[in-house]
Design a protein around this nucleic acid. Structure first.
Length: 423
RNA sequence: GGAGAAAUGGCAGAGUGGUCGAAUGCGGCAGUCUUGAAAACUGUUGAGGGUCACACCUCCGGGGGUUCGAAUCCCUCUUUCUCCGCCA
């Protein structure tokens, strides 16, 4: 969430920034400032009462110690009023603070200055494009047909044991998937990211920490018996490792990578555009997460973008990079670049990575701070990106590498698959 | 799942109702000494709110309670450890 002090000092910039998301934030911002004002004045009144009450308690203690019980009891009587008003004020303080927090949870991050105003994906800016789109001719098949033809992914079998959106990978399909995971993890660790294996179920506090809760509650699978959520992305457990953490400047940068399955309910998503691997309830993803010094986070974001570019170029997949417009940028993000691979047989771009800088938005919820050179604690910046989301990369490979008699395996993956063709 | 023990500052570890935000040690930082370093010595060193700055308030795993007063007593939750049971 945004810091109240930031809203107070940069009110106009906050409103102008949120306008790029098509949000008229003026009323919310005014309400935040009002609640904050109220919170502080209530706190101050309460402090005065508590100070008085602490003073009396100490005096009572001294009196008892020196054997003046009568005087002590006299003072005791005086504390009753203080107690009553401190109780009332505490209640009011809690109400105000809760209302303030609840409101702050509803305000998304302020977009970076480079982000353009826009409503939806149509307003995103293409900032980079690379690779030749292969000419496959009339007989090119979409990946779900290829999956059937070569018997490498079985959607019906998954539907039988779980439901739609839970594919079963078979044989060379399963092996290709495993190869991609290993390949991505190796690329990431070579680039200096430390590998982690993290829990796939998270508690409520973690959901709040990275911003999935409360606003995306419906997107996650909720295991009610134990009040845990299935992770929608490794971002959640990985970033939450740093919840309630005080870092030193020399700890930066912190670079993590991890492979996890991801679970998303994707309620209400049906139709042709979600066919095959395009949108799933369970999919695999290798994620990179960075914790950065605020002054270097955009440099880090660029570095992450370059890193993902390197992988896609090694896989020789045609791709483009979009800088998301205000309306399409995720709730918690200040700046997001989406990577899309061109899926030849479907004749459309598929999002395969999303690289974001959250600045202090997550860190504020997470209480993820560091000590600056003056010994003052400051919020760190958090970033993350996919490198990469498996199903659509797989779709891209199947479709772009198909030939009349099989699917070629990209050169870079062959050491991992152990075969160079699916046929 | 059953029985018991525990949770204190970056770490270790005192503290069982009243000048305790918390002894002590280690670590960190600054200084003295040294050509420099180490060692030794001296000082300093938790977080949040609040203030121009002080004052002041809150925090001893989380939440609630008792009390004029709680790190200390009670309830509850979570986590860790030991023993038993079950188990990939």
């Amino acid at each position: 969430m945004l810091q109240v002090a930031f809203i107070r000092e940069q009110k106009d910039a906050v409103i102008a920034g949120l306008a790029k998301r098509n949000i008229d934030a003026e009323a919310m911002v005014e309400e935040v400032l009002k609640l904050d004002e109220e919170r502080r004045s209530t706190q101050s009144s309460l402090d005065t009462i508590l100070a008085e009450s602490n003073k009396l308690s100490k005096e009572i203690g001294m009196l008892f110690k020196t054997g003046k019980a009568a005087e002590a009891n006299e003072l005791k009587a005086k504390t009753a009023d203080l107690k009553e008003s401190s109780k009332t004020l505490t209640e009011k303080l809690n109400e105000t603070a809760d209302a303030l927090t609840a409101l702050l949870y509803q305000i998304p991050n302020v977009p970076h200055e480079s982000v353009v105003a826009g409503k939806n994906e149509e307003d995103n800016e293409e900032v980079f494009k690379h690779g030749e789109i292969p000419q496959l001719g009339e007989n090119a098949l979409p990946h779900w047909e290829l999956a059937k033809k070569y018997d490498i992914i079985d959607f019906d079998l998954g539907a039988k044991i779980s439901g739609a959106g839970f594919p079963v990978y078979k044989g060379k399909g399963a092996r290709l998937q495993r190869a991609l995971i290993a390949y991505f993890l190796d690329k990431n660790t070579e680039a200096g990211y430390q590998e982690f294996q993290v829990p796939h179920l998270i508690n409520e506090a973690s959901g709040y920490g990275t911003g999935q809760l409360p606003d995306k509650e419906g997107q996650m699978y909720h295991v009610t018996a134990d009040d845990l959520y299935l992770i929608p992305t490794a971002e959640v457990p990985v970033t939450n490792m740093f919840r309630d953490t005080m870092l030193n400047e020399k700890d930066f940068p912190i670079c993590c990578t991890g492979y996890t399955p991801c679970f998303r309910r994707e309620a209400g998503s049906y139709g042709a555009h979600v066919r095959g691997l395009n949108r799933l309830h369970q999919f695999d993803k290798v994620e990179i997460v960075r914790i950065e010094h605020p002054e270097r986070s955009y440099e880090a974001l660029d570095g992450m973008v370059e890193h993902v570019k390197g992988i896609l170029e090694e896989l020789k997949l045609p791709y483009r990079i979009l800088r998301l417009c205000g309306g399409d940028t995720g709730f918690t993000s200040a700046l997001t670049y989406d990577f899309e691979v061109f899926s030849t047989a479907q004749d459309r771009w598929l999002e395969i990575s999303s690289v974001s800088n959250f600045e202090t938005y997550q860190a504020n919820r997470l209480k993820l701070r560091y000590k600056d050179e003056n010994g003052k604690s400051q919020l760190a910046h958090t970033l993350n990106g996919s490198s990469l989301a498996l199903p659509r990369v797989l779709a891209g490979i199947l479709e772009n590498y198909q030939t009349a008699d099989g699917i070629e395996i990209p050169e870079a993956l062959r050491p991992y698959t152990g075969f160079d063709k699916i046929d």
